[in-house]
Design a binder for these strands. Structure first.
Lengths: 156, 156
DNA sequence: GGGCGCAATGAAAGAATATGCATTCAATAT
DNA sequence: ATATTGAATGCATATTCTTTCATTGCGCCC
């Protein structure tokens, strides 16, 4: 009843190094290491470890999914909270807006803008402290810049 | 036998907006949209779309996974394989195309486009789910967008 | 038109996974 | 020391998913 932790570690390791296709296969691999449990237990283990059976070009395999899960469950920060904190300055030309943020701020801000899906914005691409926004038109760019400035607290 | 593509699109959309917990549940949701197929078909669809049933804190749900995207990359960077799976929508202005993909899809798709070296495309910049393509001219942009739409299966 | 080949699909059989219930063990309370 | 509680687990079974096999609709070629 005791070595659950050890087993979880082993599962972690096994799944990272080979394409495990079923719980029974995993069971055999664990047995080679002296860890002998039933499939039921593995089903529970895999759930606890958030390992998923994902389809591949040929067959399936178990793998980690943290990123995907976390992303979907996260509440994105609202732009009007993020911008005032992270905003540095904004500028633009043609249909393009270049928005500067503090270091590390570009990704969350861009994500927030994306999630609001402004009709004037075709898309955003964010680096570390800079976001490029592609607008639908030059006029749209004007609107977007004004809106960003206003959300940020009228500075840039 | 015809609306497989439409169904795939719908599945994509449904799975991205709600926590689908089983193929039967998905089946019901699809039926509400007038798409009536058996669970067998959905099993195949989900595999083709590389959607996985991933465990969460409470229960399970179907979703895209980074790992699934990674797996697809192994299947060779062929654009005509990647795009139908990862494509979300495409838009453009001036000489710029903004291509949206599912989360995590931008990098592989951009790499595939790069590797095909289209003469109309000066270059690409990819974030996580958005790609900016800089085209040689406005006309070139039209051609590029049409080509992308067609490769993706005529949707966006 | 008729025969072929092939993708898409459903129904049912077959796998794989999840789970309800009982048991065991260890820690803790009485 | 004994009872109590709760986590970990196995067993049997329920649930869910995958696959096989047969069928159907379509396009192609002669």
């Amino acid at each position: 009843m005791a070595n659950k932790r050890e087993r979880h570690l082993a599962i972690h390791e096994i799944v990272e190094t080979r394409a495990v296709q079923s719980q029974d296969e995993l069971r055999k691999l664990l047995r080679e290491r002296g860890l002998d449990v039933t499939q039921s237990t593995l089903s529970r283990d895999l759930h606890e470890l958030r390992l998923a059976r994902i389809p591949t070009g040929d067959g399936v395999r178990y793998a980690f999914t943290d990123a995907a899960v976390a992303t979907m469950e996260d509440d994105r920060g609202a732009l009007d909270h993020l911008l005032p904190q992270l905003f540095d300055k904004v500028d633009g030309t043609g249909e393009l807006v270049v928005l500067h943020t503090v270091t590390g701020g570009a990704q969350p801000v861009a994500a927030a803008i994306d999630s609001e899906a402004w009709p004037d914005v075709l898309g955003t691409i964010a680096g570390d402290d800079t976001i490029l926004l592609v607008c639908r038109s030059v006029e749209a760019r004007g609107r977007v810049m004004r809106r960003l400035s206003s959300l940020a607290g009228d500075r840039g």
